[in-house]
Simulated assay, not measured.
Amino acid sequence: MSASLLALGACGGATGGGVSAGGGTATAAAAPSAAAPSGESEARAIGWPSADQRRVYGVVPPEGATDVSYGFYKVGGGGDLWATFKTGQEGLDAFLASLRLKESDLYPGVQEFIDSELELTGWSIDPTHTVKGISAPAKEEDMKSPSHKIVVDYTGPGPFTVYILAGKP
C-alpha cells in the first residue's frame, strides 16, 4: 500500500517557513518521507495539531509555545503524531504535568528515539547537545491510550526545544 498525503490544518502559533528544532528542520511542505513505513497517510505542517489530535494523542503544547510543528502518520485505526515546539521552564513543567510526568523523570540522552523514528519525523537531534528524555508506555489500565517518547533539548540560550512522538496501536 502506498502512502498518501493527509492535509493537516495549521492553526494559531504558526511561524511560517522552516522551523529549526535542535539541529533539525521541519518544513511546511507535506510530503511522504522516503523512510516512512507503508501506511495510509502522512503529512507535516507548521502550527498546532488539531484539537482532536491533541486530545486523542495527548500532545498539547503549552500556552505560549513557539515554533510549533507537527506531523501525523495514520495506519489502520492507529498511527503516530509527532510534534516539536519551544517553551520556557514554566511551559515545560505544564506540558510534562499534562502527561503525568515531571522534569526529574527525564533521563540524560537521546536514547528514547530509534533511527527509524528520527527518519519518519525528519528530526536531527545533535547528540552533543544537552538533552534529556523519557519513553512513557501506554497506561496499563487503558492499552488504547497513546505511548509517548519525549526529548527536551536544553542547549543554548532561550527556550528549550521539546520533541514528542505519540503512538497508538
Rank of each mutant, 00 (worst) to 15 (best):
F85Q: 00
F85K: 00
F85S: 00
K86H: 07
T87M: 07
T87E: 07
G88R: 05
G88K: 09
Q89E: 12
Q89G: 11
E90Y: 03
E90D: 13
E90L: 11
G91D: 05
G91W: 04
D93L: 12
D93Y: 10
F95Q: 05
F95T: 02
F95D: 01
L96M: 06
L96H: 01
L96W: 04
A97I: 09
A97C: 03
A97G: 01
S98D: 11
S98F: 14
S98N: 14
S98V: 12
L99Y: 11
L99V: 03
L99E: 05
L99S: 01
L99C: 07
R100V: 00
L101H: 07
L101R: 04
K102V: 03
K102M: 05
K102I: 01
K102H: 06
E103Y: 00
E103F: 00
E103T: 01
E103W: 02
E103D: 00
S104Q: 10
D105I: 03
L106S: 00
Y107T: 15
Y107E: 09
Y107Q: 12
Y107C: 01
P108V: 12
G109N: 09
V110R: 11
E112S: 10
E112M: 12
E112Y: 06
F113W: 03
F113Y: 06
I114G: 00
D115M: 05
D115W: 01
S116C: 05
S116P: 01
S116F: 09
S116H: 10
E117W: 00
L118C: 08
L118P: 08
E119N: 11
L120N: 01
L120V: 03
T121H: 05
T121W: 04
G122Y: 01
W123D: 05
W123I: 06
S124Y: 01
S124Q: 07
I125P: 11
I125K: 13
D126A: 11
D126T: 14
D126Q: 06
P127R: 14
P127Y: 10
T128Y: 10
H129W: 05
H129N: 15
T130V: 11
T130M: 04
V131A: 13
V131P: 08
K132V: 03
K132M: 09
I134F: 08
I134M: 04
S135G: 07
S135D: 07
S135N: 09
A136E: 13
A136F: 13
A136Y: 14
P137S: 05
P137E: 03
K139R: 14
K139Y: 11
E140Y: 12
E140Q: 15
E141K: 14
D142I: 12
D142K: 15
S145D: 14
P146F: 10
P146S: 13
S147D: 14
S147N: 12
H148M: 06
H148S: 07
K149Y: 04
K149P: 03
K149V: 02
K149M: 03
I150C: 06
V151R: 09
V151T: 15
T155G: 05
G156I: 14
P157F: 06
G158W: 00
G158N: 06
P159T: 13
T161C: 13
V162A: 07
V162Y: 08
Y163S: 02
Y163I: 03
Y163G: 02
I164H: 04
L165R: 07
A166Q: 10
A166T: 07
A166E: 08
A166F: 12
G167Y: 00
G167F: 01
G167C: 02
